[in-house]
Measured scan of single mutants.
Amino acid sequence: MAAAAAAGAGPEMVRGQVFDVGPRYTNLSYIGEGAYGMVCSAYDNVNKVRVAIKKISPFEHQTYCQRTLREIKILLRFRHENIIGINDIIRAPTIEQMKDVYIVQDLMETDLYKLLKTQHLSNDHICYFLYQILRGLKYIHSANVLHRDLKPSNLLLNTTCDLKICDFGLARVADPDHDHTGFLTEYVATRWYRAPEIMLNSKGYTKSIDIWSVGCILAEMLSNRPIFPGKHYLDQLNHILGILGSPSQEDLNCIINLKARNYLLSLPHKNKVPWNRLFPNADSKALDLLDKMLTFNPHKRIEVEQALAHPYLEQYYDPSDEPIAEAPFKFDMELDDLPKEKLKELIFEETARFQPGYRS
């Protein structure tokens, strides 16, 4: 834990890192770190609560700039109880001085990944967590956004079992017609939660990839272990087919990539493993919904509104309290091709509203 900075004593240090967030945020305490930044909790002297502050230093890398800009653009436009918001952003007053960006968010005690390492969940908890994931996802999908990296560590939890989806750095506007060349190379989302079509096709992607990830998360809540822990690309596919069985001819016809289709045709026939054999203690309604989410063919996979209306979630289902976005989200430009200098300018502009004396 960093010592509390005395008023006016300059930035606090946390594990050798400068955290320049005073005077409003003090009493910093280390939480963890990701690929390009550290997260601390801090005391907000204005709202009198502890908050989470993520320090991001992305400006050396085009990919990190892209992810940072995506996350900020999306989260500043989203407003939903099951999606983490941005409360404040701290950065230098000029673009030349801006080396880091500090993002202030609600402090959540833990995440689903940490929880599943230590606790076996009751059916009631599984049901409530799944409902909140789908409630947040309904809003995301209504904005025409794909999260693309749903996994237990991106689901934040607090002691009252509130759940918030975080990390929109890989999110995209849904565009089933656009052929994202190089899709697989830039697709760094965790393999275990990846839909089979991501490994088999490169053309376009749809909201059904997020539903697949939610199915993987439900299976993990039922058993405290990942359902498809593939060691590499082909191993991942083999794990999936080992449980779902061989795809039907109709399902194979959806695979545009001939090499991928021929690979699947070359494999020995596998039978589907019954879900109640894998999860003998699970609620039968939970397994019915799991089956509809972990469907090989993305066109037959359940959609988020149908999933919310499934009998497993009937005690929570309330369409009048499951809000959607006001308007579909649009990125003005494809960020993939922009140089990091341009992305830095866009991050600077996007964060201006939090600067003292800002006038829109």
Rank of each mutant, 00 (worst) to 15 (best):
283 D>Q: 08
205 Y>I: 04
244 L>N: 01
98 M>L: 13
276 N>K: 15
235 D>Q: 08
95 I>P: 06
238 N>D: 00
305 E>C: 07
166 C>A: 04
119 Q>I: 09
272 K>P: 08
169 G>K: 03
319 P>D: 04
191 R>K: 05
274 P>M: 09
255 I>H: 02
266 S>K: 07
100 D>R: 11
258 L>I: 07
242 G>W: 00
269 H>S: 05
270 K>C: 02
332 D>E: 13
54 K>E: 14
76 L>A: 11
102 Y>M: 07
18 V>L: 13
71 E>K: 15
22 G>T: 02
60 E>W: 13
84 I>W: 05
190 T>E: 02
307 A>S: 14
147 H>K: 05
40 C>E: 15
329 F>C: 04
82 N>A: 10
45 N>P: 12
217 I>Q: 04
272 K>R: 12
60 E>Q: 13
214 V>I: 08
328 P>T: 15
209 I>F: 14
345 E>F: 02
212 W>Q: 04
321 D>G: 00
161 C>L: 04
241 L>T: 07
52 A>K: 04
192 W>T: 08
187 Y>A: 00
116 L>G: 06
97 Q>F: 12
166 C>F: 12
234 L>P: 05
323 P>R: 01
192 W>I: 05
131 Y>L: 03
74 I>N: 15
285 K>F: 10
14 V>H: 11
345 E>P: 02
301 R>Q: 01
325 A>I: 03
250 E>M: 08
75 L>Y: 05
241 L>E: 10
314 E>G: 00
87 N>Q: 02
125 H>R: 03
291 D>E: 12
201 N>G: 04
202 S>W: 11
28 L>G: 03
251 D>G: 06
8 G>E: 11
333 M>Y: 10
144 N>I: 15
360 S>N: 10
353 R>C: 09
274 P>I: 03
300 K>I: 12
236 Q>G: 02
118 T>W: 08
82 N>Q: 06
82 N>G: 06
357 G>E: 12
65 C>G: 01
75 L>C: 11
120 H>L: 15
171 A>V: 12
234 L>A: 13
132 Q>M: 06
92 A>N: 01
37 G>A: 15
294 L>H: 03
190 T>P: 13
325 A>P: 02
111 D>Q: 06
115 L>F: 00
357 G>V: 15
86 I>A: 02
191 R>P: 07
268 P>I: 01
285 K>P: 10
169 G>E: 03
84 I>T: 00
322 E>L: 01
203 K>G: 11
97 Q>A: 04
39 V>E: 15
162 D>I: 00
126 I>C: 05
290 L>V: 05
140 I>K: 08
41 S>T: 14
275 W>E: 07
183 F>W: 06
324 I>A: 03
180 H>G: 12
257 N>I: 15
94 T>A: 11
72 I>P: 01
224 N>M: 05
282 A>V: 07
3 A>M: 07
32 G>Q: 00
334 E>W: 03
191 R>L: 14
231 K>L: 09
318 D>P: 03
76 L>D: 00
64 Y>L: 15
51 V>E: 13
263 Y>D: 00
198 I>V: 11
350 E>M: 03
55 K>A: 07
10 G>Q: 11
252 L>H: 13
313 L>T: 08
67 R>C: 03
221 M>Y: 05
52 A>Q: 01
306 Q>P: 07
274 P>V: 11
100 D>Y: 15
214 V>W: 04
344 K>L: 07
108 M>E: 10
347 I>F: 15
53 I>W: 07
191 R>E: 10
218 L>P: 01
150 L>F: 07
159 T>Q: 06
190 T>M: 03
27 N>P: 03
269 H>T: 09
217 I>M: 09
143 A>N: 10
292 K>N: 14
155 L>W: 00
93 P>A: 12
205 Y>Q: 04
167 D>V: 15
277 R>P: 07
67 R>D: 04
63 T>S: 14
346 L>S: 11
112 L>S: 04
163 L>C: 09
106 D>C: 03
213 S>Y: 07
170 L>S: 02
342 K>C: 04
208 S>G: 04
169 G>S: 11
62 Q>S: 13
97 Q>P: 14
165 I>Y: 04
70 R>L: 12
265 L>R: 05
20 D>H: 13
214 V>H: 04
50 R>K: 13
128 Y>F: 15
20 D>W: 03
251 D>E: 13
259 K>F: 11
179 D>T: 10
319 P>A: 08
